[in-house]
Nucleic acid binder design. Structure first.
Lengths: 339, 339
DNA sequence: AATGTTAGGGAAAACGTTTTCCCAAGATGG
DNA sequence: CCATCTTGGGAAAACGTTTTCCCTAACATT
């Protein structure tokens, strides 16, 4: 039994210093830290706590990770950090994870399968506690990872491999229908739809919801007002689509865009056109946090960013309880000529 | 000497599997991976490489971190991820780090000392290779950390503790002067200045540059057009400042804002004012990537986001060579009534 | 009084790497 | 032909935790 004062020399591992100061073994220190309740008397716990505080000790994560075969890292692989909506979701996730003592590692896959795979590999090597895919894309490693034991959580876009996986997001199909019904209720008749590639389930569901919504109301969309230019980012898609539409001499009452970024791009096309065509009303999806400040004319389907963090954490903690978390969306109307 | 085929049972540690397959010891596998050149014959290297590829092996980072007392993680503590400019810098950093085999851990300190400290602690525990402070705030842990051996890199804002540290950013003072000279050259006379709290060195330097620039030209700024409301985020600062100005019945030719976010907030005040006051010309700092699409009337000092990543990595690799990295800025003019 | 049972806590193994010693055999130099 | 390097590579220590055993006392139960 070491007397509580005999610290002739300190042994390696900072936990040793704590143990020495508290006059206990490192096993006890570890147990106190991890809240193993039935293995230490209140007095011992107090002594250890004091020592931890006094030495400002925090266990080195490598040692822990090595032993437990898992780290405190939670990987968030985002498809596009330049999208303020994704950044907002990431920020919310980070706060929620932090409260559980987890650390977010944020990566930008740029929607590229190869980069996503690279990150998946790396995060497996890091023994990430879980991997959150904020806009996943189909990729070879994704298949392998879901065979492993690392929890996978899909946010916004569903698992592109088709397997059933934890999902957090809004009901995109329903949101699409809501937009259609709203447009009809507003008396808007000539409707254009600009959308991203349908490889993303979110876009696919939104588009089908919109089309179905109009069809149900007997006001089917005109095919040649539905545009989906192949192009890199959403901003450019919007710009391109708008140019194509304008080139046809069309002037819709409402432009529906499957993301706010597409709407931003489209708006630019009308703005740059000095020929006096008025900008049509527009509605997007996501309601980027900046909209309130920068896009006063853009209506949007607001997704509850702030809620994503909690939902992700819940999906992580209760893998089975919440396989599917559908958050509520709502239409934010802006730019009415008269209210 | 194990025959290359005798894998009766696999030993723990995936590196063992590789070693067995290649018919060498784990030491050799490790050496091959880490490029210790003089310790393996070309034939052996080839066999090991083959085994690594075949087994899709990647060393577990915990083992490595434990032994080497450092990880591949580079922490980036950002003051505000909702600011698209910061997000862009983070994205650039991530790409650059990735290319060096490093992994970025991105955290949002919300400009709060307590959160910054919490993250600093955590990243020390993670044995982060380096800590990048993208907008640091003064905090107790910061003092301690700089006594340690973990490299600290300050981006945008200089080390608030006053100690000399690696810095990456633009010449804010000079940028401020440039804005003043540009305004004068444009013939703009009645100038308002909205700025954030001067606790940030970036803001401080910008403000002093602006004031000096006007003073040098014999056109000193009028004190009561310089506004700096105390308020949480920059958007609100801008909104508040504009409202205060409008309440005074002032209508400036140009509003200079020390960040684009402030300008966004200010613009909103004018927009919401239905009394017909035309929106003055505005110029901000940072030139958020979205400006090109969303803020066609806002001029701005563009900082080269894309260059930050490389600069940060350089500061990391050559600690002494590049203690101070000053990147070039440039004025982006927008919203001239006639060009 | 003998026998569980439980609370409290220590010793040591285990986790997967990297790296320090070692060592054998061939090459080189005298 | 002996001594000395060099080259190639293995055995084992070390890194800082967590966790599995183990042990001792004290207490409760027959």
């Amino acid at each position: 039994m070491p007397a509580s004062g005999d610290s002739k020399f300190s042994v390696s591992g900072s936990i040793n210093a704590v143990a020495q100061r508290a006059g206990v073994s490192i096993a006890t220190v570890s147990r106190v830290m991890n809240g193993v309740s039935n293995k230490a008397s209140p007095a011992t716990v107090a002594r250890v706590r004091e020592a931890i505080a006094a030495l400002d000790y925090r266990p080195t994560s490598a040692g822990r990770a090595l032993r437990q075969k898992t780290s405190h890292l939670v990987a968030v692989l985002a498809a596009n950090l330049a999208n303020p909506a994704m950044a907002a979701i990431a920020a919310s996730a980070e706060t929620a994870l932090r409260q559980k003592g987890l650390v977010m590692v944020l990566c930008d896959t740029h929607d590229r399968p190869d980069l996503q795979d690279e990150y998946l590999r790396e995060m497996l090597a890091q023994q990430a506690r879980a991997i959150v895919l904020l806009g996943a894309v189909d990729s070879p490693m994704l298949l392998k990872v879901q065979e492993g034991s690392t929890p996978l959580i899909f946010v916004n876009r569903r698992n592109p491999t088709g397997a059933e996986s934890a999902f957090v997001g809004i009901d995109n199909r329903r949101a699409g229908e809501d937009v259609a019904h709203w447009a009809i209720a507003q008396g808007l008749r000539r409707i254009a739809l600009f959308h991203a590639p349908t490889s993303s389930s979110a876009t696919r569901e939104r588009v089908s919801g919109i089309i179905a919504g109009f069809a149900d109301a007997g006001a089917a969309l005109s095919k040649d007002l539905v545009l989906s230019p192949v192009s890199g980012d959403h901003l450019t898609i919007g710009l391109e689509a708008a140019r194509q539409l304008l080139a046809k001499g069309e002037q819709p009452d409402l432009v529906i865009c499957t993301s706010d970024l597409i709407a931003f791009g489209a708006a630019r096309a009308w703005r740059e056109l000095r020929s006096g065509n008025p900008m049509p009303r527009m509605i997007g999806f996501d309601d980027s946090p900046m909209n309130e400040w920068l896009a006063p004319e853009l209506s949007s389907i607001r997704i509850p960013y702030a809620g994503f963090g909690e939902a992700i954490v819940a999906a992580l903690m209760e893998p089975k309880a919440s396989l599917l978390t559908i958050l509520p969306h709502k239409i934010i109307e802006r730019g009415q000529k008269s209210a």
